[in-house]
């Protein structure tokens, strides 16, 4: 067993795990990137959302053997040189977070949305975030935050 090679946030990693292990568990427990959260284990809640290339996926539903050779981005990969991404900053500015557990997933889903559609309508934002659940905020401020970031680059 040679180990599985992964490219996460621009950096190479080699992990010695079963290729059936979920990408989420590898990120959290083998690599130590705990910004990707875990909750439902069944693809429903969205807290484990990461990007493969530009596309959002639920990392609890991705066997790690699938993503060899792909560019994986987690919430830890968004800030550049200590500066938050536009979206991260607008989540702060709009007070979009309460307990915060769902927020990395929302920011990753919204990042993917804004790459595909830089200036979404409120309805498009709702649809773009429909794979993520939040038990605290009632979504209003989360949508405000995405709207505020829209058009300014994800």
């Amino acid at each position: 067993m040679e180990g599985i090679r992964l490219e996460i946030n621009g950096k190479g990693h080699v992990v010695d795990v079963s290729p059936y292990k979920s990408l989420r568990d590898v990120l959290r427990y083998d690599i130590g990137l705990t910004g990707t959260k875990e909750s439902c284990d069944s693809g429903v809640c969205g807290v484990c959302t990461v990007l493969l290339g530009d596309k959002s996926v639920k990392s609890c539903l991705i066997p790690v053997g699938k993503v060899v050779g792909e560019k994986i981005t987690t919430i830890e990969g968004l800030a550049k040189e200590g500066e938050f991404s536009v979206l991260q900053q607008s989540f702060i500015d709009c007070f979009a977070s309460q307990c915060g557990y769902c927020i990395p997933g929302f920011i990753m889903a919204a990042t993917s949305l804004l790459i595909e559609n830089p200036d979404p309508t409120i309805q498009e934002i709702r649809e773009g975030l429909s794979g993520n659940l939040c038990r605290c905020t009632g979504y209003v401020k989360i949508i405000d935050a995405v709207r505020q970031a829209a058009g300014r680059g994800a």
Binding site: V57, L113, G128
Partner: peptide, 12 residues
């Protein structure tokens, strides 16, 4: 097709 879950599930 838009009725299927959210973007993450549709991407995969």
């Amino acid at each position: 097709t838009s009725e299927i879950s959210g973007p993450q599930v549709r991407n995969q």
